[in-house]
Design a protein around this nucleic acid. Structure first.
Lengths: 159, 159
DNA sequence: CGGAGTCGGTTGCTTTATACAACTTTCTTG
DNA sequence: CAAGAAAGTTGTATAAAGCAACCGACTCCG
């Protein structure tokens, strides 16, 4: 995008999109939610160009959505973690996920959100359908089903 | 963006972003939710380039999120309306709006969501804080407060 | 009847972001 | 001491977004 912001708009939707609306940004955040926290792991998982990934991570750190912190010294190796501000984007990701489940992938569901422990799925208001609780980020887990892209023929895991 | 899709991803979040993740798209949908339905009105409100607006609207119609229908013949003038599929993006917009309210505009809230009739605001699960009901798209109204961008000095409406 | 205005686009050119691949630095392991 | 991993950085190319001007169909005004 030419400018990442929307100068004619004074709107909370626009202001959020100015921060997380660029290509790849929300997928990076999704990956961090899933526990993918290192540069190379993110790059491999997303297939994004490394310079773009670098630019996005730097921006997200500047915005206070991620923090960069070393998980080892010598050599310094960093990982990216969500701040509270970043974790508060969870409802956005859940809303995108649920719309994608309904309209995106022809009934396939590669990922399912569950209430930790209880195991119930989440409804569109992030409540557990089993126990009825309001589920927060920390109480939810994302379970990857085995679902793959339909046109890709499933192969036995080999060599 | 070079490609609008994310070929390495088989994920409902990514599949949703392939459809609505391009620059301007979600703001166009927000405007249609607010009742701005005509090409020129959208263009004026958003300040988006006309060719981009045209491309986005065409894509959204192809995707079944908007429908184009004439509101008059001779000359044919069209407006864009949300389909059910489009209206189901409401939770995404609400989530973006609420994050923006919390983190985006320094406490200013240019727009407030209320439960129609009851007048209560919506919580982060789209429930009415006054009566407790689960609020759906059709039961909600967006109220624009007078809030403006702080650095813009408020002027009397003139000429 | 002629000119201005409106709506909904389309076209051409410029600017900017994204993609891709190769390279770098620092340190670890065999 | 060579190979490899992690985390970037750099350079070049291509595609998308921005901008302004134009267009066709019709209406309204004088």
């Amino acid at each position: 995008m030419l400018n990442r912001d929307y100068p004619s708009q004074y709107c909370p939707v626009a202001s959020t999109l100015e921060v997380v609306g660029e290509r790849w940004t929300l997928l990076i955040i999704r990956d961090v939610f899933l526990g993918i926290r290192r540069f190379d792991d993110l790059q491999r998982d997303l297939g994004v160009a490394r310079n773009i990934l670098q630019a996005r991570l730097e921006r997200l750190v500047e915005e206070g959505i991620l923090v960069k912190r070393p998980y080892q010294e010598r050599p310094v190796r960093n990982e990216y973690r969500l701040t509270e501000k970043g974790a508060d984007l969870w409802p956005v990701l859940v809303a995108l996920l649920q719309w994608g489940d309904r309209y995106g992938l022809e009934g396939e569901r590669p990922m399912i959100l569950q209430h930790r422990g209880c195991g119930g799925e989440l409804d569109d208001r992030r409540r557990c359908v089993a126990c009825g609780a309001d589920v927060t980020v920390t109480e939810a887990i994302a379970v990857r089903t085995g679902a793959r892209r339909p046109q890709t023929v499933a192969e036995p895991v080999s060599a």
